[in-house]
Nucleic acid binder design. Structure first.
Lengths: 218, 218
DNA sequence: TTTTAATTTTAGTCTCATCTAAATTTTATA
DNA sequence: TATAAAATTTAGATGAGACTAAAATTAAAA
């Protein structure tokens, strides 16, 4: 049984490995987790002891197969709870992270299994990130930015690139959510804005917005 | 913000106060929580420091008004989660305690508020215990034998007086479990049997059976 | 009312997870 | 390549929460 801190470290290393580099540095972890490098070093030794990471002094860490599996399962729990909070408790998708951060540490295989069923085995969370399966396997979604989609194609909104609160609230206001089907009607060359249609509404979206919206082409 | 341990101590003291005595002894807490008396003493000093309990060396503790409110809110969270686990995730009533024990420490007023709404503001948990309201007020339910319940009242089964195997098997066979809601339709004066309704079923129950079944009146 | 037993507290230790400050190793630069 | 800068680790401390063993207090029995 892992402690809450151990789970959080594994999760963070997982994120840093997939999103940035292969070998993760002590400072990168410390910055990401808003803690001190010396605390990270301590924990790395403990995780290495438990064979969850491979760690060499001054050389950074990477997850072992076991560590990766554990991390993916924590992420699975986090994302399933996020789906629950948004779909069942009607939270906004930008309000759920902190709560899911706590719920993800509740220990019960059976709970997560039943929650998954209750939510109809969702494949993506409210931020459009894929939910690992029970074995910790992640089916990577081929993400594109809305700005990269060709005219007349229809795409489904699966998330945002940078989840700044204002942007999330902006999307909320105009009515774009995860799962919203968006058709690209035209692109303006002078300002790179896109003209789109969704839920029978039509509107223009700035370059900045269209470059921050992840979609999946249907 | 209270720690998990502090919340657990307050909850335990609350239970001991209501179920047993007014002033709670160090040993009673230690036994109830399966910990050592010296650990309890330590924590009592910390809780007294925070004005959550009134503590005098060698004289036991009791909750302050604040401590009582905090404890009741932890219990509220616990019982709401139990309802969720049983009603939404289809757990059996005897499987949920351990999981609720973890979920109760998730910190978010908003979460509990929305969960309460999602569950249609339940007043009792799957064990028949009352759920404190958001302010920490508990509407006490009185425990009675089924035989003592008035006609047309609805009660919830909370246990048996003497747990003879044959009686438990009898209950199982007819479909009465902990948490089963039973309505008393009529009483026969000639043999003191009761005619009841539960889960859309109707049947007669002998005096002997109705005097061996603990219920709580809703 | 002593003496004994039970209860409770104190003192000191342990682990986990964090920190600061100092030392060490690696990397980058002159 | 020597040296400065950055990154990383070590050493030592802290606080929460638990423990054991011993001391102190209260309650019970002779």
């Amino acid at each position: 049984m892992l402690t809450r801190a151990e789970e959080n470290y594994l999760k963070s290393i997982f994120h840093l490995e997939t999103e940035l580099e292969d070998v993760v540095s002590t400072n990168a972890i410390a910055e990401f987790m808003e803690t001190k490098p010396s605390s990270v070093t301590d924990m790395m030794r403990r995780l290495a002891e438990k064979e969850l990471v491979t760690y060499q002094r001054y050389k950074g860490v990477y997850l072992t197969d076991l560590g990766e599996k554990v991390a993916a399962r924590v992420i699975r729990r986090h994302r399933l709870w996020e789906v629950f909070l948004v779909e069942k408790l009607n939270f906004q998708w930008d309000e759920v992270h902190e709560i899911a951060e706590q719920l993800e540490h509740v220990q019960s295989e059976e709970l997560i299994c039943r929650l998954d069923t209750f939510l109809n085995n969702p494949e993506i969370d409210p931020h459009g990130d894929p939910i690992p399966n029970a074995e910790g396997k992640i089916k990577p979604l081929e993400k594109k930015l809305l700005s990269e989609v060709d005219i007349n194609k229809t795409a489904i909104c699966i998330g945002v690139k940078e989840s700044a609160t204002e942007f999330l609230q902006f999307l909320d206001r105009i009515g774009i959510q995860i799962g919203t089907k968006i058709k690209i009607l035209s692109k303006e060359t002078f300002d790179n804005s896109v003209f789109i249609e969704f839920n029978t509404k039509r509107m223009s979206l700035s370059q900045k917005a269209s470059e921050n919206l992840f979609i999946k082409i249907l």
